[in-house]
């Protein structure tokens, strides 16, 4: 149990993740659900990036003249994955928002329970 403080990055991630999760499942407003999903998404990004971090490391761009010193680079692989994931994330978020706009036009509301109520009537 001596290593507990070394795990704080995971705990931050979990707290953020659960906040996003709560927003998604507990809120009826569709736009808020999307925002919650974004929080969840960012927490996953932070998880990956923090796993790639090495103590005393630097950004993974090769230094031309190190002056003979050993340079430690952080792991570039998670950076690559997350880099693309962010842009994919915004594209899919846009798709979700577009769907919300259409739902609003069809139902006149973006509240989940009101949509269900209208479905029941129909």
């Amino acid at each position: 149990m001596t290593n507990l403080p070394g795990l704080y990055n995971y705990w931050i991630v979990i707290v953020l993740m659960m906040t996003g999760f709560y927003v998604v499942i507990a809120r009826g407003n569709l736009i808020k659900k999307i925002v919650g999903l974004n929080i969840f998404q960012t927490s996953v990004f932070i998880l990956y990036i923090s796993m790639g971090k090495i103590d005393g490391g630097t950004a993974p761009i090769i230094v031309a003249d190190t002056g003979g010193a050993e340079v430690v680079y952080s792991n570039p692989l998670p950076h690559v994955l997350i880099l693309t994931a962010i842009v994919v994330g915004i594209a899919t978020t846009a798709l979700g928002l577009a769907l919300i706009v259409r739902i609003k036009e069809a139902y006149g509301t973006v509240e989940e329970d009101e949509i269900f109520a209208k479905d029941e009537q129909a």
Binding site: I31, I34, V35, N38, T42, F45, I49, S50, G52, K53, G57, T58, A59, P60, I61, S74, P78, H79, I82, L83, I86, V87, G89, I90, T93, A94, L97
Partner: peptide, 24 residues
């Protein structure tokens, strides 16, 4: 956390495009 490329993307995507789309 040494991820300058990722920070770059997150700042321009999250602070710029995402906010504008949400506002729209």
């Amino acid at each position: 956390l040494d991820a300058v490329d990722v920070a770059f993307t997150e700042a321009s995507v999250g602070g710029g495009i995402a906010t504008v789309l949400m506002l729209a």
